[in-house]
Computed example of a mutant assay.
Amino acid sequence: MSRPGSDLRHVVVGCGGLGSAAAYWLSRAMGGRVLALEQHALGGSAHDARPVHLLQHHDADAALAPAAYATWRDVERVSGLPLLTETGGLVIADDAARRRIGRLAAVADRHDVDFELLDPRALRRRWPQFRVTGTEDALHQRRSGIVDAARAGATHLALARGHGAEIREHSPVRALRATPSHVEVVLDDEVIRAERVVVAADVGTTEVLDGLGGLSLTVAREQVTSYATPHLLDFSSARFPVFTWHGADDVSGIGVHGEVATTLGQHGAGDGPLRRRREEFLAEHVPGFAGPEIATRSRLSAVPSDGHHVIGAVPGEPRVAVGVGARPEATFTSLIGRILAELATTGSSRHPIGAFALDRPALAAPSRWRSHA
C-alpha cells in the first residue's frame, strides 16, 4: 500500500463514472503507479441505463461527441464487453418548445451529423408507441443509444486493476494541500504524497478543492422512475428509441434495456408533484411505457451555472486536474476520463476543451471559487 514518501505518482479522487474512467486511462498509460480513492463502497450499484447522443445541443459538446463514441468502442474492444447500444434517439418538442428543434438541427448541420426532421404524422407512423396532438416537431438521430453506467464503471475499474492500479473504497478525501514538491491528499488516517491528482468527485468536488480555492457549482437533482411495462417487445431497444420530450416538463425516456423495465427521468425536487406529472405525461403521450412502478430514485450531480462540463487544471495549480460532467447522459463519461488522464500525464489534451476550463466566468465566485450547493 502506498504511504507518504513513496513514489506514487497519480491519485484519482472519486470512483464514479468519470473517476473510474480516469483510473483506467491513467493506469493504461502508467501501470501500477495509480491509486483511486472512493468514499463509498464499490460494486453494489444497480443497473443504471443512461442515454448517449452523437447529436448535442452545444457546439463545444458536438465537437467532442465523435471522439466520445470512439472511446466507448475502444473500451468495448479491450474488455470484450458490450457497453454502448445504439437504438436511435428522438427529440420531441411541443409548440411552445419547437425552437429547440431548430437550434439542435443547426448544431447538427455545423458538425455534419445526419438527422431527420419528422412531423407528427411521420412520428406516429414510425413509432406508434407515441401519442401526439399534431402540434409537435421531432428530430431523429440514428446513432443515439444507451450505456449502462454501473456496468461501464465496473468495467473501467476492472481494467484499471488489470493495469496494476490500486482501488480503495471507504477512503474519503478530506482535503488537498499543495507543497512545492508534491500534492498532499488528506484522508482520515493518512496523508498521501502525489505528483498529480485527478479530482472526479461530482457533488463532493467543491469540498475536495476547498484548500486550493474552490469551485462555483450547484447541485442538480433528477428523479428517475422505472416501470414494469407489460409491453416488452414494443419498448425493446430494437424497436424503441431513447427520447427527450420538451414541453411543460422536460422528460427523458429509455426503453427496456438490461433491467426488465422502462425508465423515465425528470429534473426537479419534490417527488410527489413530479410523480404526478410523470404519470400524467405517460398517460397522455406514451401510455404503453408505464406499468407498476418498480422504484424511483434521485440522481444528484454537480452543475456549473452555464450547464457545461468542467474539464481542466486548477488555475495556478496544474498538478490538479478536475472533471465534472454536466449531463445526466453517459456520452462523455469515458472520454472525459481519458482527457483527465492526458492532463495528468502530459499537461494538455489533444481534444478541444477550452470551453470547459476552470477559469471561465461561470465558475467564478466572489473572492474565491466556492460552492453554492
Rank of each mutant, 00 (worst) to 15 (best):
residue 105 A to E: 10
residue 92 I to A: 04
residue 6 S to M: 11
residue 53 H to I: 05
residue 39 Q to S: 07
residue 24 Y to W: 12
residue 72 W to H: 04
residue 42 L to D: 10
residue 89 G to A: 03
residue 108 A to N: 11
residue 73 R to N: 07
residue 36 A to C: 06
residue 37 L to C: 03
residue 116 E to Y: 12
residue 65 A to M: 00
residue 119 D to S: 08
residue 95 D to A: 13
residue 61 D to H: 13
residue 18 L to R: 12
residue 96 A to G: 13
residue 39 Q to E: 12
residue 19 G to S: 06
residue 5 G to L: 14
residue 7 D to K: 15
residue 27 S to N: 06
residue 67 A to T: 02
residue 74 D to W: 01
residue 110 R to E: 03
residue 18 L to Q: 10
residue 42 L to M: 11
residue 24 Y to P: 10
residue 14 G to H: 14
residue 34 V to Y: 05
residue 21 A to W: 10
residue 23 A to I: 03
residue 125 R to F: 10
residue 57 H to M: 07
residue 40 H to C: 05
residue 109 D to T: 11
residue 61 D to M: 01
residue 67 A to L: 01
residue 92 I to G: 03
residue 108 A to G: 12
residue 55 L to G: 15
residue 54 L to Y: 12
residue 112 D to K: 09
residue 8 L to A: 07
residue 33 R to C: 12
residue 63 A to G: 00
residue 41 A to P: 06
residue 22 A to D: 06
residue 41 A to W: 13
residue 29 A to W: 03
residue 84 L to P: 04
residue 114 D to I: 14
residue 96 A to R: 09
residue 10 H to V: 11
residue 90 L to Q: 04
residue 11 V to R: 09
residue 62 A to S: 04
residue 12 V to P: 14
residue 74 D to N: 00
residue 76 E to K: 01
residue 71 T to S: 00
residue 53 H to K: 14
